[in-house]
Computed example of a mutant assay.
Amino acid sequence: MQFDFSERTIIVTGAGGGIGGATCRALHAAGANVVAVDRSADTLAALEAELKAAGGTAPLCLALDVTSEADMTAMAEKTVAAFGRIDGLVAAAGILRTSGQPHAVSDTGFDEWRTIMDVNLTGTFLSNRAVLPAMQAQGQGDIVNISSVSGQKGRAFDGPYSASKFGIIGLSESLAEEVQRLGLRVQTVLPDAVDTPLWDQSGTAALKPQNMLTAQRVAEFVLYLMALPRDVYIMNSVLSPLRSRVRKRKPQA
């Protein structure tokens, strides 16, 4: 897919992750002013070097925490100071779990619950809220929040993650209703399993499905949503890999 995001300034949270990083690369290739946000300064430095080597506008990389209200306020302020506007936000920061293998709700500690909810749901809320003043002043803007198919149907042994992703959908639907009359769009993407380092980090690499989406494919769909004509939007898009059917050959007589 070919996109032209020249002169558009897009913030991506979770830029150090699989989907966030792929989205930064896709936006940069499409000519956007990319603002990459992640907690890891080292990961951001590597991404910045990669995008600078590719040419075009140098990204603005901000080592900030989506769970911090002050950091998200600073994110919006620094973006406006650097580029004069905020045209889009892709809220891709998220974690699956904090402690190894999948486990039941009965075995989930409060600290793990709180961390997952803080990063996935509160982080989406704070980042969304932070960009609204600039977008409202412009009378235009795009927000794409990354949820999951686990936000559509709860999955056993990942209760906190599913709950947080359900919450992102509800938050996005409410916000979309509130701001569409102001010229702002809020859309969500619900990817199926995506082949990212998250599987290895969460200790579940052995559970990876055979058919998975690539982070690049999710990123392309995010850009597609932001490139839609201004009078339409798509809410809660489920993105799944095409599972090709292999026909069994009949034995020869």
Rank of each mutant, 00 (worst) to 15 (best):
5 F>P: 09
5 F>R: 10
6 S>N: 13
7 E>V: 05
9 T>N: 11
13 T>K: 06
14 G>Q: 02
16 G>P: 03
17 G>W: 04
20 G>F: 00
24 C>D: 04
29 A>Y: 06
33 N>T: 08
33 N>G: 05
34 V>P: 08
34 V>I: 12
37 V>S: 02
40 S>N: 10
41 A>E: 12
42 D>Q: 12
46 A>R: 15
46 A>H: 09
48 E>A: 11
50 E>Q: 14
53 A>I: 04
55 G>V: 10
55 G>T: 10
57 T>N: 13
58 A>E: 15
61 C>A: 15
62 L>P: 09
64 L>Q: 05
64 L>C: 03
66 V>R: 05
66 V>L: 09
67 T>D: 05
68 S>I: 03
68 S>D: 01
70 A>V: 03
70 A>W: 01
71 D>H: 11
72 M>R: 08
73 T>A: 15
76 A>Q: 05
77 E>F: 06
78 K>V: 01
80 V>P: 10
82 A>P: 04
83 F>P: 06
83 F>E: 09
85 R>I: 08
87 D>W: 01
87 D>M: 09
91 A>P: 00
98 T>A: 12
99 S>T: 14
102 P>T: 14
103 H>N: 07
106 S>E: 14
106 S>V: 15
107 D>S: 14
108 T>S: 12
117 M>G: 00
118 D>C: 00
119 V>G: 02
123 G>M: 04
123 G>P: 02
125 F>Q: 03
127 S>Y: 00
129 R>A: 05
129 R>L: 09
133 P>F: 07
137 A>W: 04
143 I>P: 00
143 I>A: 01
144 V>C: 00
144 V>I: 14
145 N>G: 00
149 V>S: 04
152 Q>D: 13
156 A>V: 14
156 A>L: 13
157 F>K: 11
158 D>E: 15
162 S>N: 06
165 K>H: 06
173 E>W: 00
175 L>F: 04
178 E>H: 10
179 V>S: 05
182 L>K: 12
182 L>S: 12
184 L>S: 07
191 P>A: 09
192 D>Q: 12
194 V>T: 04
196 T>R: 07
199 W>Y: 11
201 Q>K: 15
204 T>P: 00
208 K>Q: 14
212 M>C: 10
214 T>I: 05
215 A>G: 06
216 Q>V: 10
218 V>N: 00
218 V>P: 00
220 E>P: 00
220 E>C: 08
221 F>S: 05
222 V>P: 02
223 L>H: 07
224 Y>W: 14
225 L>A: 05
226 M>I: 09
228 L>S: 06
229 P>H: 11
233 Y>V: 08
234 I>E: 10
235 M>E: 13
235 M>C: 01
237 S>D: 07
238 V>E: 15
238 V>M: 12
238 V>Y: 01
248 K>L: 12
249 R>Y: 04
249 R>L: 14
250 K>N: 10
250 K>S: 13
